[in-house]
Amino acid sequence: MHTSIQLTDIYTSEAGAVYQCDRRNRILVDFANELAILKVDAFLRLKKAVDSINLEQMAGSTDRASDFEIVSVCGCDKIYVLTLPQLYAFKELLAEAKFTLDLNSMLHECLFTQMA
């Protein structure tokens, strides 16, 4: 028996896309030709880890070790090795996806509160 999994497009940019699978309660992050399938809490940890990177300090550094950042979180089987431009794009992708998820959650809550 073959069952298809319906994915909801949360946010798409030139850099990648974020999808939601309601059936399995997962977030799929497609970035830098890598697909990460995450539980919601792992997605939030990934966003927090990327948000904690000081991009301005990284951009202003003359140290060669500041040319890239390694991002890894518990619950994510991917290790991202990202350059500064990739980090900017990844940070934007995750932020917009989180905003859309929050907005959808609020709309869903409002609709079902009014229907009850």
Rank of each mutant, 00 (worst) to 15 (best):
Q6H: 12
T83W: 01
Y88I: 07
R45A: 11
Q86G: 13
S61H: 04
D30C: 02
N25F: 13
E69V: 02
L84P: 04
L46Q: 01
V73I: 04
E56K: 14
Y80L: 09
I37Q: 11
T3I: 13
Y19G: 04
L94F: 09
N25I: 01
S61L: 06
H108R: 13
C76F: 08
K91T: 04
L103F: 13
F68V: 01
F31W: 06
H2Y: 12
A17F: 00
H2W: 11
L84H: 07
G75N: 07
Q114D: 10
R23P: 02
T12N: 00
E34S: 09
A97L: 07
M1S: 11
L44N: 01
G60A: 12
Y19Q: 05
F99A: 10
L84M: 09
K39S: 11
M58E: 03
L28Q: 13
D22H: 14
D77A: 13
E96G: 05
E109A: 11
V29P: 06
K78L: 15
C76A: 02
L35R: 11
L107Q: 09
F43A: 05
P85L: 03
I37M: 10
L44H: 14
L94V: 00
L35V: 15
D9S: 14
S105W: 14
F90G: 08
M58S: 02
T62A: 02
N25H: 10
T83P: 01
C74D: 14
A17E: 07
T8I: 10
L93W: 02
D63K: 03
Q57I: 01
A65I: 00
G16K: 01
Y80I: 00
L94H: 14
V71S: 01
E14V: 00
C74A: 08
E109C: 15
E14G: 06
L82Y: 09
G16W: 06
G60Q: 06
L7R: 03
I70L: 05
V40Y: 10
I27H: 03
E92K: 10
K78M: 06
Y80C: 03
T62S: 07
C76Q: 07
K47P: 00
A116V: 14
L55N: 06
Y88G: 05
F112G: 07
L7E: 09
D51T: 02
S13C: 11
H108K: 09
Q86C: 06
N25D: 15
N104W: 02
Q57C: 05
L35K: 07
D51I: 00
D30I: 12
D102G: 13
L94S: 00
S105E: 14
A116Y: 15
T62Y: 07
I53N: 04
D51V: 08
S61Y: 08
G60W: 00
Y88Q: 15
C21S: 11
L55K: 04
L44D: 15
Q57E: 05
D67A: 01
K47A: 11
D41T: 05
H108S: 15
R24G: 08
L101M: 08
E69W: 14
E69M: 12
D102K: 12
Q20L: 15
A32V: 05
